[in-house]
């Protein structure tokens, strides 16, 4: 026997390691099954990031507003949400989603409106991610030299005009790497949506291991899938980041550390 076979025999002799199920991970049907889960994971991520970006932008501008009645509610929203676990928000929307949105959605979609678990998950994720993106966007805006806004107002641009045509285009370019970094975090966080019954990667994995009693292999397999995607994304974001001016990078990084870990 060659050393590889010897090693394999030794590994497979360990109780709890299910070598007889290893074929599953290359079996086309099972791979497609995991693929569906991955598809759901990616859909959750993209939907959450898009929604969060819109909401986050509003709250970033709100927090930068000079009007206290806009600024303070924005600060309250951002800081409260960032102080809470994402999972809490997801579970809450998973349980309450439909009831919560019925009053708004019924007039539009009719009586039999049902908020799917997918969208409950997106809501929970977006609530959190929007607060984080708001902080990243704000850091990007404040990282711009003061002269930019001043020059814009000197040209006679209104507040909205200077934001729209001068500040945001530059600030958003500064933020691209940070946003990509946050996308990595969102992808990892979609795993939490498994707990409210969305059949993304982790939940599909559960279907498999409850049937074949091979959790060790299943979670390693899933971990590798996440790793490949998140590692590629975080490397790309790091590479882009190195092109940004140092000052802006530091400011954005400060905001990010806490939220990337989540």
């Amino acid at each position: 026997m060659n050393p590889f076979d010897l090693l394999r025999a030794a590994v497979c002799a360990t109780p709890g390691i299910r070598c007889d199920t290893w074929y599953l991970f290359v079996d086309p049907a099972i791979v497609r099954f995991f693929g569906e889960g991955l598809g759901e994971t990616l859909k959750l991520s993209v939907a959450s990031v898009l929604l969060s970006f819109v909401v986050g932008l509003l709250f970033a501008l709100g927090r930068l507003s000079t009007r206290p009645w806009i600024r303070w509610p924005s600060i309250l929203y951002i800081e409260t949400i960032r102080a809470l676990p994402v999972l809490l928000l997801i579970v809450y929307f998973g349980i309450k989603g439909t009831a919560l949105f019925r009053p708004i959605m019924t007039p539009i979609f009719g009586e039999d409106f049902e908020l799917s678990r997918f969208w409950a998950g997106v809501l929970g994720l977006s609530l959190y991610t929007s607060a984080v993106l708001a902080e990243i966007i704000r850091a990007g805006i404040t990282a711009l030299p003061k002269g930019q806004t001043e020059a814009a107002s000197a040209l006679g641009l209104s507040y909205v005009g200077s934001m729209r045509f001068v500040v945001l285009p530059q600030a958003l370019r500064l933020m691209v790497p940070a946003m990509m970094g946050q996308l990595t975090t969102v992808i990892k966080d979609t795993s939490l949506v498994a707990t409210i019954g969305v059949f993304e990667l982790v939940r599909q994995g559960r279907v498999i291991y409850t049937q074949f009693f091979n959790p060790l292999e299943v979670f390693l397999y899933i971990a590798v899938i996440y790793f490949v995607i998140c590692f590629a994304l975080s490397q790309a974001s790091r590479r882009l980041e190195l092109r940004a001016p140092v000052e802006a990078r530091i400011k954005i990084e400060e905001v990010q550390l806490r939220d990337q870990v989540a």
Binding site: T184, K188, D189, S191, L192, A194, V202, Y209, P215, L216, V218, F219, L220, I222, A223, Y226, F227, C230, F231, S234
Partner: peptide, 16 residues
């Protein structure tokens, strides 16, 4: 850093 904490927990508890 590039895998979800949830998967790590499942691995530690169920896998191990």
């Amino acid at each position: 850093r590039n895998t979800p904490l949830l998967v790590q927990l499942f691995f530690l508890f169920l896998g191990l």
